[in-house]
Amino acid sequence: MFTFRVLAQCPETGARAGEFETPHGVICTPVFMPVGTQATVKAMAPFELEAIKAQIILSNTYHLYLRPGADIVEEAGGLHRFMDWHHPILTDSGGFQVFSLATLNKVTDEGVICQSHLDGSRHVMNPEWSMDVQQKLGSDIAMCFDQCLHYPCTREEAEAALARTTRWAYRSKEAHHRVDQALFGIVQGSVYEDLRRQSAREITALDFPGYGIGGLSVGEPHHVMYQMLDVLKTEMPFNKPRYLMGVGHPSNLVEGVARGVDMFDCVLPTRNGRTGTVFVSTGKINIKNQIYARDFSPIDPHCDCYVCRHFTKAYLRHLYKAGEILAARLCSWHNLRFLIRLMEQMRESILNGNFPEFRQHFNEVFHGEGDENEN
């Protein structure tokens, strides 16, 4: 039911083009996954996601557990029917909320005692809880429960989180029984090379159908993230998909693909779209700036999205200044298509054998690596 094939690989870098078969369709990699935290990608309807050629989206286990509740989603026929998205879905484990809501959580070897950010109620999050919720949601890909750390962290903290992540991976696998759902393990180890190698070896020994790379894009410099990916490139199985979690800046996508990563996700394109920041071929601009008041050109003349084919910078700026909801929708639409198109271009270059040239041209034209923390 879950088959991954590498169709081509760049010998100079290790960049891969592949196919990952799931119950709801084949995912062509490398792929960017829009984030639909609450069973919706912010500002985008499912048919619009299809129009921009999104292949798979990500939803959030923790948030859907709290609202509307995993039982309700299960009664609705699962997440695909509930949100009317009939293509692949990946659900995270809830482990990232252990990191992002650290002030509300207490972490032990058993799991996490979590205080809801909605109403203050207390909940126990652990591998068994995560597997139960994700199986009720019915995603195509579920993630093991893990512990993600902040940056910087001490070696002792990284060692403890690594040990927990490995133990929790065993417990996640033991608690997971849904045969139409692939369970991915997650590699941790912070920015310590030997710990990254150790985590990769421990997690891949469990023979999951795919592997996430967690604990990056949490504030570390980009060159450090790339260093960790270089370390893992030779430690990860060739015949399994590799998923770099929480990364979505264009430069990071290109450099991640160059290091053998197949899957990415990030809230960046929709978050930026809501504030008027949009990607262009040379970097990014803020459409609300006065300079665009009489600019009757598209956001990016090289982009094939609906927004760039129909609207101008001047119109989009007007929408923002007028407080119109359409502004956030159109800029989110463009940003998502920009990233998805970038992945398509990289895949094509890998298949055609000219990825190094594509990467060089991109790095010459596109300026700016983005924020230090974009999760």
Rank of each mutant, 00 (worst) to 15 (best):
T165G: 04
A142K: 07
E156I: 06
H177Q: 12
I186A: 03
A169N: 00
A200T: 12
R171L: 12
I203H: 10
H150A: 14
V191S: 07
P152Q: 13
E157A: 15
Y192E: 05
G189E: 04
T154A: 13
Q134G: 02
C153K: 14
E193P: 01
A163T: 11
G185F: 10
L137Q: 01
I186D: 02
D180C: 00
C144F: 00
A158H: 05
R196T: 09
E159R: 14
Q181E: 09
T204N: 08
E174Y: 05
R155A: 07
F184T: 06
Q181I: 02
R197M: 14
L137F: 04
D146A: 10
Q135F: 10
T165R: 07
H150E: 15
S172T: 08
A163N: 09
S199M: 09
W168K: 02
K136W: 06
S139A: 15
R167F: 00
L149R: 05
T166F: 13
K136Y: 03
Y151E: 09
L195V: 01
C144H: 00
R164A: 07
L149Y: 01
C148G: 04
Q181R: 07
E202T: 08
Q147G: 00
Y151V: 07
Y170D: 11
H150W: 04
E156K: 15
T165M: 03
G185P: 09
Q147A: 05
A142L: 07
Q135V: 00
E174H: 05
P152V: 13
Q188F: 03
I203D: 09
R178K: 15
S190N: 15
F184L: 06
L162Y: 08
M143K: 02
Y170V: 14
Q181V: 08
K136C: 01
V179H: 09
M143G: 12
L195T: 02
L183H: 06
D140C: 06
C148K: 06
M143Q: 06
F145K: 12
A175K: 04
E193Q: 11
A158F: 11
S199L: 10
C153I: 10
T165H: 11
T154D: 12
R196F: 13
A163Y: 03
V191Q: 11
Q181S: 12
T204G: 07
G189K: 08
A169S: 14
L162G: 02
G189C: 07
E157V: 04
T166L: 11
I186G: 00
L195R: 03
V179L: 11
I186K: 04
E193D: 15
S172Y: 11
A175D: 01
A175W: 02
P152S: 13
H176S: 10
Q135I: 01
I141F: 03
Q147T: 05
R171F: 00
E202M: 10
R178G: 00
C148W: 11
E159C: 09
R171I: 05
A182Q: 07
L137C: 03
Q147M: 09
I203A: 04
I203E: 10
P152T: 13
S172V: 13
H177K: 12
Q198Y: 12
T204V: 15
K136M: 09
V191N: 11
V187T: 14
R167S: 13
F184H: 05
I203V: 15
P152R: 10
F145P: 00
G189P: 08
